[in-house]
Design a protein around this nucleic acid. Structure first.
Length: 128
DNA sequence: AGCGTGACGAGTA
DNA sequence: ATACTCGCCACGC
C-alpha cells in the first residue's frame, strides 16, 4: 500500500470524528441518555445530524440506545431492542397516560438526559 | 454546479 | 398534544 493517497482517513480505521462520537456514546452511563445534539455540543464539533450519521453507520459497536432524539422518541425500527435495554438499565421512561396500544413509551428526557458532567455514582437524584 | 435525503433540533401554528 | 417550517451539514445522484 505504498499509496500515500490524499486520503489518510479512509484506511482501515474510522474517521476521527466518528471515533470521537463513539467515544462519547461509550461514556454515557447506564440508565442515562444523551441526545444527538448534546453529543455534538459536547464535542464542540459537528451537529446532531452528523452525530446521527455516525450512529447510523457505526453505532452498532457502542450502546446506541443511549444516544437518542431530543424529543425522547424511540428509534424507529429498534423500539423493542431499546426497550429491553431501558427496562434492564432502569432508564426513566414516560408511560403513556392513556392505555392505548401501539403507543410505545417515550424517554423521560427530563430525568434521563445526561450532561456528561460527572459519573452518576449515586444516580438517586430522583428529582422528586 | 444543483438538488434531495437523513438514527436532528428548535420554533411556530 | 400534533403538524409544519426552517436551519443545519454531510453524502449521493
Amino acid at each position: 500500500m505504498g499509496r500515500m493517497s490524499d486520503d489518510p482517513a479512509v484506511s482501515d480505521e474510522l474517521p476521527e470524528y466518528a471515533e470521537r462520537v463513539l467515544a462519547v456514546a461509550e461514556r454515557i452511563p447506564p440508565g442515562r441518555v444523551m441526545t444527538y445534539g448534546d453529543v455534538a455540543e459536547w464535542l464542540a464539533d459537528g451537529g446532531p445530524r452528523q452525530v446521527g450519521r455516525v450512529m447510523a453507520l457505526y453505532g452498532g459497536a457502542v450502546p446506541w440506545w443511549r444516544v437518542v432524539r431530543a424529543d425522547g422518541l424511540l428509534l424507529p425500527g429498534h423500539e423493542l431492542r431499546a426497550m429491553a435495554r431501558y427496562r434492564d438499565e432502569g432508564t426513566p421512561l414516560r408511560t403513556a397516560p392513556r392505555t392505548a396500544e401501539g403507543h410505545l413509551p417515550r424517554l423521560d428526557m427530563k430525568r434521563a438526559r445526561w450532561d456528561g458532567r460527572e459519573a452518576p455514582g449515586n444516580g438517586r437524584g430522583d428529582g422528586s
